[in-house]
Design a protein around this nucleic acid. Structure first.
Lengths: 231, 231
DNA sequence: ATTTTAAATATGTCTTACATATTACAATAA
DNA sequence: TTATTGTAATATGTAAGACATATTTAAAAT
């Protein structure tokens, strides 16, 4: 029997109708030059225009609600809203669902950000913020409890972000915290042995008080690079 | 007539049933210790368990589909999937929908990242990547067309991110490009007058070739700080 | 002029019905 | 037996109809 070899066939498109409506709407929102507050057509009109049922339209619209792109005023209609760029990212920031490679990259991104922050930190540091850092470091040094120390580690770095006074960067860091904790807990990193070069929080703080941005970057590199095989 | 003064009342909760189901499911997914590929209960079971209609369940589930948290194999059931942390952010990254303050903060974040990248760039730069940068700079210098120059500007900085070999950071940059372009186009920034300190792409390239990470950071600061009133 | 009523409207929810892709398994042909 | 084809069961996808309800608008009543 002759074996029939299948010719090059592309897999059939496997999008549901709702998926297609979603794509349609995304285009519509993107190109519509909408501003927050603008009304969009009502469900029945959309259903009529796209020749689908109201059910399907509603399922697609529901997707955009979780993104914060639209909002419905009950019984009045739906409007375009100002989405929050970080909440959606936050929703899916689950170490259990991310792969190792991505987490390593995210951790490297943290390193990039914390080194890049140096100039801003020296520019925006205040007496009170340095005192707060001092308190955190002091408490950290007074405990041997591993969990406690981890807590103060998070607090120290969070405080640095706070000093930046950049809300977006701060929220970005808070969002990534689950990843950092996961990495800090010893997965995907090299041995925790702290070599002679290691820079402690105390060292970082002293540099921030009396040093230069350049010194701070060097110490921060030594503080965090410890977690990498190589950069 | 006596005027009744309303006591301090909290606004009534204004969540729809689907919103509540969404919250329920978010909890369920988060605490369920799911791994990608795991199946979740079928729609009718969820509807029964939550005492709501299948329609409402479907609208809520649909929301998680756009986040990439679940996926449905048609007629077989739904499974947990590995979400992409950046696509959702991308969906809402529309300069028209963001407020000015957020955009300024995002631009500052760019500055932080591009300065923080220095060490990695020097570690991962290659001959071929330097040649590509050289080509971009050469083409930029040969044109006076404003739009062309903007194009090469984007290419230059994109190439830097590429050298980092960090996919996440690269995608982050690509996602923010609309913002950068919007800012570059002259809104929310100080005068474009380039002071004597200004560092060109040519300068940055030469430093990357023969200088140190520290020099690179200084030049990058001067290259980008130009866009700020003060940092 | 002010308040009350009533109608119209659009979203929210539920129910029922059926279509359809996938799977597993039985039936059939080689 | 072995491989292919057919078939039933299943869960999701889609549609349509019905009604609830909050909001708005306008008409009606005070």
């Amino acid at each position: 029997m002759k074996k029939i070899v299948a010719p090059k066939l592309r897999p059939v498109e496997n999008l549901t109708q709702v998926d297609k409506i979603e794509i349609n709407l995304q285009e519509y929102f993107k190109n519509g030059n909408f501003s927050p507050g603008d009304a969009i057509p009502k469900e029945t009109e959309l259903a009529l225009a796209m020749r689908v049922s109201r059910t399907a339209i509603r399922e697609a619209l529901s997707r955009f609600k979780i993104l914060g792109i639209i909002e419905s005023r009950k019984n009045r209609g739906m409007i375009i809203t100002r989405p929050d760029i970080l909440t959606n990212m936050q929703r899916v920031m689950d170490p259990k669902l991310l792969d190792g490679e991505t987490m390593k990259e995210i951790f490297e991104m943290r390193l990039v950000i914390e080194m890049g922050l140096a100039d801003i930190l020296f520019f925006r540091k205040t007496e009170s913020s340095l005192i707060k850092l001092e308190e955190i470091v002091a408490k950290e040094e007074q405990t041997d409890n591993k969990i406690e120390r981890l807590k103060y580690d998070v607090e120290f770095h969070s405080m640095l972000y706070e000093i930046s006074q950049n809300e977006t960067i701060q929220r970005f860091q808070k969002m990534l915290l689950p990843i950092f904790e996961y990495v800090d807990n010893g997965l995907h990193i090299k041995s925790q042995v702290q070599d002679a070069e290691y820079a402690s929080h105390r060292v970082l703080l002293n540099v921030l008080k009396n040093g230069t941005p350049e010194e701070f970057r060097n110490k921060m590199r030594k503080h965090l690079y410890n977690y990498f095989e190589k950069v």
